[in-house]
């Protein structure tokens, strides 16, 4: 009798302990400052999204979330640091379509284990690109007309990009592989120089991130033919999607938040939930939309599936377009 009661008690105690122990890891978190690595320079889009989310996490979780910019090598340096950090939830980081889906194929070597990867927390925002042409150099009003013109004069027309292997470049390669046109790629260091040369008419067309390009379109310096997201963009509501002309054409640049691989699932869950909640706040939604992006906020699993699809898609484009590996 005694023994039986003792065993029951012990078992109960043990189970309570076990429950509190597993819950404790998630509940106590965060108990100190959390570092958010942004693998790009201060002032860019990824930095802006990272700071917006960090600020809100700060408020909700009562601990400081400090943004650290670790730029270089297309985001590889910052992600390398994230991968090397202790997977305890006290170091998390931002990632983009380039750093987390394209570089996987584009770079022969990465400063972290490609197979191990990261623990995705949530997709923060997607930003469509827009296909813009210089109206004086290319007298076309639609994607169909552009394709016809490009087919008629193969190899004669140029498109600008923010660099080899960027989502902006690969959108152009996607156009070439999907329609079989021959166009010359003119890479720049960053998209501002590139769009300047399209505005000036030195290069014929380009895909560019929507906020800056939309301003040029509104001022009549460029003509927008299509956006690369599946839905129309709020900044350019009259512009059709690429998908409506070339089915399956989707090339958005996206920004998400990650933890190092091996971070306890309770912490991943907690952070993911918080980020999702933040992205569903109306004020936050409005802020992100004003930057030309669409706020998302999905679960860790949904984000992981999304990344897998993106990685495969861009791997195919890189292969089909013969983009040299770095």
């Amino acid at each position: 009798m005694h023994l039986k009661r003792f065993i029951t008690l012990a078992a109960m105690a043990a189970s309570i302990c076990a429950v509190t122990a597993t819950a404790g890891r998630g509940q106590d978190y965060p108990s100190k400052t959390v570092t958010v690595i942004v693998p790009f320079a201060a002032g860019g889009n990824t930095d802006a999204f990272g700071r917006l989310v960090a600020e809100q996490l700060d408020k909700r979780l009562g601990q400081r979330f400090i943004v650290e910019n670790k730029p270089g090598a297309g985001g590889n340096i910052g992600l390398g640091e994230l991968a090397r950090a202790e997977p305890d939830g006290y170091t998390i980081g931002m990632g983009t379509v380039s750093s987390n889906a394209i570089n996987q194929t584009l770079f022969k070597t990465l400063p972290y284990d490609k197979a191990k990867g990261f623990a995705p927390l949530s997709l923060i925002a997607r930003m469509p690109n827009v296909l813009v042409v210089n109206p004086e150099k290319l007298p076309v009003n639609s994607v169909q007309e552009l394709i016809e013109l490009l087919k008629k004069e193969p190899g004669k027309h140029t498109y600008a990009s923010s660099g080899v292997g960027t989502s902006i470049h690969l959108a152009g390669e996607l156009l070439a592989t999907k329609t079989g046109v021959k166009i010359t790629h003119v890479p720049y260091k960053g998209s501002s120089q590139a769009i300047m040369d399209v505005v000036a008419g030195h290069v014929d067309f380009m895909f560019d991130n929507i906020p800056t390009a939309a301003q040029q379109v509104k001022a009549g310096k460029l003509r927008a033919l299509a956006v690369t997201s599946l839905d129309k963009a709020s900044l350019l509501p009259d512009v059709p999607t690429m998908d409506s002309v070339i089915p399956g054409f989707e090339a958005t640049s996206w920004h998400g938040i990650f933890a190092p691989a091996g971070t306890p699932p309770e912490i991943v869950e907690k952070l993911s939930k918080e980020v999702q909640a933040i992205l569903h706040e109306p004020a936050m939604k409005e802020k992100i939309e004003s930057m030309g992006a669409t706020p998302v906020g999905n679960t860790s699993e949904e984000f992981a599936t999304f990344i897998k699809g993106e990685t495969e898609k861009w791997a195919e484009v890189i292969k089909a377009a013969n983009v040299p590996l770095q």
Binding site: G43, S192, Q215, A219
Partner: peptide
């Protein structure tokens, strides 16, 4: 500076 403007909700452009 452009980054700062975008965060402030102003996208610099010709207008």
């Amino acid at each position: 500076m452009v980054g700062a403007m975008i965060i402030q909700g102003i996208t610099p452009g010709p207008n």
